[in-house]
């Protein structure tokens, strides 16, 4: 029955209201607690000369800029964000192509994409990044007589993107398969080709549905970007390791790095919740 008709009969003063416990459940208390803890930890850290030192080094290893506006421009944080965002965008695109191939009825597309996904998911990300950094990049350079040489950062980005594309492909596939088959039938019965139906009917719905797991993969990637430190890319963790090896203050170095990762992921999580709330169209 239509809700509007019933609403007209209900008296306004007895319209349902959230109970106290529902209100408590819906308010993001976890976020308040977390932000408060981070602020406390941050203030406590700044009291200590060693922590101030560690933080200063990690966000600004070359000591080229004063701490302040320069933090985001020439620091480990910048490299972490750059590596994460660029790899993520590449993985989003490659993953989408692979995900669509995974649900294809064409045997070549299906088996090629499945092979890729299973191999990439089976190989540790760390091994993949090492392999790209120390085998593929030098190999390409030698094969082209040095005309085509990727930087360490570029190699790291490609490694992360290739690995994550496999995970994202599975996320997309799950989204596509969650769309009722009547949607494809309706689109086909109107004369659309399979790819037109995918493009205009299935994917727009599937992608909306997988925003939460895609965001989850972004957070995982933000942290996995630390893996590119193994090919000496100067991101947050690499800077922290450098700091620890110079000063032998392991707690200060790694705690500071952890705090920075936590802040970055938290900022992103709040952003995603905001987007999800505004973009909620369900089938």
């Amino acid at each position: 029955m239509s809700a509007t008709k019933e609403a007209a009969i209900v008296r306004p003063e007895i319209r349902s209201r959230k109970t106290f416990s529902q209100q408590m459940r819906d308010f993001p208390w976890w976020g308040v607690l977390l932000v408060a803890s981070i602020l406390l930890a941050f203030v406590a850290m700044l009291q200590s000369e060693q922590y101030r030192d560690a933080l200063r080094f990690i966000v600004n290893p070359e000591n080229t800029t004063e701490i302040g506006a320069g933090i985001l421009i020439k620091t480990g944080i910048r490299v972490t964000l750059l590596v994460t965002v660029v790899s993520y965008v590449m993985a989003l695109i490659l993953g989408l192509i692979l995900g669509v191939m995974r649900v294809s009825k064409n045997p070549i597309l299906y088996h090629l994409s499945t092979l890729y996904v299973e191999v990439m998911r089976g190989v540790p990300m760390l091994v993949l990044i090492l392999w790209i950094g120390f085998v593929v990049v030098p190999g390409l350079r030698d094969a082209t007589d040095g005309r085509f040489e990727l930087s360490r950062v570029q190699g790291g980005i490609i490694g992360l993107a290739l690995g994550y594309a496999a995970y994202l492909a599975e996320t997309y596939r799950a989204g596509i398969e969650s769309i009722h088959k009547g949607q494809m039938e309706a689109a086909r019965s109107l004369g659309m080709s399979y790819f037109e139906a995918m493009r205009y009917v299935i994917l727009p719905q599937a992608i909306r549905r997988v925003v939460p797991p895609l965001a989850n993969d972004f957070v995982a990637m933000l942290k996995d970007s630390a893996l590119v430190s193994v090919v000496a890319v100067p991101e947050i963790l690499q800077s922290a390791r450098l700091y620890v090896s110079r000063t032998f203050r392991a707690f200060e170095g790694y705690n500071s790095a952890a705090l920075l990762y936590l802040i970055l992921t938290l900022l992103f999580i709040f952003l995603v919740r905001y987007i999800e709330g505004r973009w909620h169209v369900d089938a």
Partner: peptide, 27 residues
């Protein structure tokens, strides 16, 4: 051939991400 044959389903199968108007203009 399918473009010349309209089909109406038991469960409607409208495209939920499009408005009524867009449902009719898409194809």
């Amino acid at each position: 051939v399918r473009a010349e044959i309209g089909m109406v389903f038991q469960l409607f199968n409208l495209f939920p991400h499009l408005t009524a108007l867009q449902n009719i203009t898409l194809a």
